[in-house]
């Protein structure tokens, strides 16, 4: 490093750490959204580095649809315990039972997460919510600021975003409003995997290829589990798959893969021809502007 060159991963890490520290220093009650998925695991890792050797100065929150991969929840709890942060669980099931939201007929709970998230933010008075979303994931996300202002209904107004110059982030809000903060904005899927490899970050086993019982549905491979039951006419077969994203277990499909190590995953990701969400998420296929519409409502 004597010529003062900085690799792109080191530059991305430095940027993310700067963002974590800005929020901790300027916002009243930040919280980190933590699902046990790879992006949020990287986020937790970066947060630890940002404040080291002090502990992370804010809690983490999981908006729990109740439809998770068991390995991911097990990992979430273990990782949270090892980190020593406080975990707030905002339960979608509980919100359904209380009548705050109604379960849609198709059983998918993605969209009804939003009111649950907003309710929890209000209850705990969180004014800054860290999310692991990346701009390379989706075309509406590609438009969003690092510090993304949400009004007191949690809504994003894509046509009226705050200008964001240099690294001078404006996190000021009035009570009831929020900032969503995306430290991984400039990372790609490949950057995430390279960083996981570089830093030897542990992940839940669903990210690695293993032979799983699957059904094929809408051209995607879903592992049969508590949430995915074979429907009439679907045959169950064994296939070596891994997950590229880990969201709601009823919506997240796996991809055929032989990759059992991070290095092998990096090689596969570098060669893939399909985006992460396109390959694995039933929820984004609804319409051209599905993500923008959900974000306007307050979704991540």
């Amino acid at each position: 490093m004597s010529d003062y060159r900085v690799s792109h991963l080191a530059a991305l890490e430095a940027e993310a750490i700067f963002i974590f520290r800005e929020v901790a220093a300027t916002c009243q009650r930040p919280v980190l959204l933590f699902s046990g998925g790879k992006d949020s695991i990287v986020m937790l890792h970066l947060a630890q580095k940002a404040f080291w050797p002090a502990p992370i100065p804010f809690p983490v929150m999981h908006v729990d649809t109740g439809q998770n991969f068991d390995e991911v929840i097990e990992f979430r709890d273990r990782r949270v315990a090892a980190t020593g942060v406080q975990l707030v669980v905002a339960s979608v099931q509980d919100a359904i039972d209380r009548g705050l939201v109604t379960e849609p007929p198709d059983g998918t709970r993605n969209r009804i997460q939003t009111p649950v998230l907003l309710e929890a933010a209000e209850k705990y008075q969180f004014d800054a919510l860290f999310g692991g979303a990346r701009r390379d994931e989706e075309k509406a996300r590609a438009k969003e600021r690092v510090f993304s202002f949400r009004d007191d209904f949690g809504q994003w107004d894509p046509k009226n975003q705050r200008p964001e110059l240099w690294n001078l982030y404006n996190g000021r809000v009035h009570s009831g409003e929020q900032i969503r903060v995306f430290p991984l904005s400039n990372w790609t899927e490949l950057d995430i995997w390279r960083y996981i490899g570089d830093q030897s970050i542990e992940l839940p086993p669903v990210y690695f290829a293993a032979e799983r019982e699957v059904v094929e549905r809408d051209g995607m491979l879903y592992a049969v589990n508590r949430f995915i039951r074979p429907r009439d006419g679907e045959t169950v077969f064994a296939e070596k798959i891994r997950y590229r994203t880990v969201g709601d277990a009823t919506l997240t499909a796996g991809v055929r893969s032989d990759a059992t190590t991070v290095e092998q995953i990096i090689a596969e990701v570098a060669a893939t021809r399909i985006t992460e969400r396109g390959a694995t998420r039933g929820d984004d296929k609804t319409s051209e502007a599905a993500m923008e519409d959900r974000k306007r409502e307050g979704y991540f």
Binding site: H8, D136, A142, K143, K159, S185, E292
Partner: peptide, 30 residues
């Protein structure tokens, strides 16, 4: 590919910055 917002597509113009990423063996580009 970059005009990702509904109103941008409707009007055929760019309203806000879109960030895109690509890499070559030499560099990563934002």
């Amino acid at each position: 590919l970059t005009d990702g917002l509904r109103s941008e597509r409707e009007q055929g113009i760019t309203i806000d910055v879109a960030y895109r990423y690509f890499a070559t063996p030499e560099r990563k580009f934002i």
